[in-house]
């Protein structure tokens, strides 16, 4: 999920060979709903604060990750642990 246009996302997906969905939120509507709009952060454009959210079958957030910098990302092990915790009854 980013503020990039679908065309930009398509180029990125093709470059990475990724198979997941790239959603475009150019107006930042979802960013505002989540309070993660970083104003003027990328050459004057608004972008998202780096964030990851795991949502369960009922639509509830089960894990929320906020990064402290643009270089930091949630490690795959951390994400898999959150998924395992969600799937554990």
């Amino acid at each position: 999920m980013s503020v990039d246009s679908p065309a930009t996302s398509r180029r990125l997906r093709d470059r990475l060979g990724a198979r997941f969905t790239f959603l475009s939120d150019p107006g930042g509507l979802l960013l505002d709903a989540l309070n993660i709009r970083h104003r003027g952060a990328k050459e004057g454009r608004d972008i998202a604060f780096p964030t990851a959210i795991l949502v369960d079958r009922r639509g509830s957030a089960r894990w929320v990750y906020e990064s402290e910098t643009y270089r930091q990302r949630a490690e795959p092990e951390t994400i898999f642990a959150a998924i395992r915790a969600m799937n554990t009854p």
Binding site: S2, V3, D4, L12, I36, P50, A52, I53, L54, V55
Partner: peptide, 8 residues
């Protein structure tokens, strides 16, 4: 899983 990133 939703991942919000800064864009390309």
């Amino acid at each position: 899983l939703y991942i919000f990133y800064r864009g390309d």
